[in-house]
Design a protein around this nucleic acid. Structure first.
Lengths: 125, 125
DNA sequence: CTTTAGACTTGCAAAATGCAAGTTATACTC
DNA sequence: GAGTATAACTTGCATTTTGCAAGTCTAAAG
């Protein structure tokens, strides 16, 4: 995928963020990379929400084209070559933390089984 | 719409937030209500991104059922009866601010025309 | 060299979105 | 208070996106 294919709906930064991240799956991929650190395609597939293989490939390709995600070994073949967040992707961490905390407070009455804390982040080296 | 219809993909709070907010339009409605304060249906329709009427009605209904948005005058007819954020909806403000700032820094190379600050209100006739 | 398995790709059904037009009812005008 | 204008939706249908199952490709293991 080419980042030149992106369609920006307006000049608003919030809208632009949503042009990239505003769907059911993209931020979940980011979440997995924040929580677990670098992960391979099939590790990402194993997340409990059950993303489809074609969607995962599509979103990784989009995130890569925007330089939010990259391969750990850019010049090696794909097999077992994990994806990780770039600095730009990593900068979403506080946003996702805010979303999680917001949900814990404001959705708890509608979703009884929601966890009180997200999986504890693993320290990156 | 009934909040009982919500399908939660997992117990993860971040995912739960995205079960509600993770689409192209919902957070843009929240953005408009944060930026402008209370707004009517047709004022929300006038936002530059051009949400469709059926989608706007659907999302307002969903946000209302989750008590994130409410009518300014709950017992009056719909006409000119604006929507506003509840406390729970208002609590998304820092998340949206974070998203906007993230985009300004991390998408600027891909979206030349992005504003440094969100849109100012558009006047209706 | 043969087999295995990870990383995708493809094809099609189902759901969501987008668009135009239609409907309802309330407020305004006379 | 009758007529009209218009805000707030609703409906129907075309288009796009998502979801699912199966298939392909190729590096790595044996």
């Amino acid at each position: 995928m080419d980042s030149g294919e992106m369609k920006w709906r307006s000049a608003c930064p919030i809208c632009s963020a949503l042009d990239v991240l505003g769907d059911r799956w993209t931020m979940l991929i980011v979440r997995d990379l924040i929580v677990h650190g670098p992960r391979t395609y099939s590790e990402l597939l194993d997340s409990p929400e059950g993303i489809a293989t074609n969607i995962l490939a599509d979103r990784l390709s989009l995130l890569s084209s925007l330089m939010l995600v990259e391969r750990v070994n850019p010049d090696s073949p794909a097999r077992n070559n994990a994806f990780r967040l770039t600095k730009g992707g990593e900068a979403l961490r506080p946003v996702l933390e805010g979303l999680g905390k917001w949900a814990q407070v404001n959705l708890k009455n509608f979703h009884q089984d929601m966890l009180r804390m997200p999986d504890s982040p693993k320290k990156r080296k």
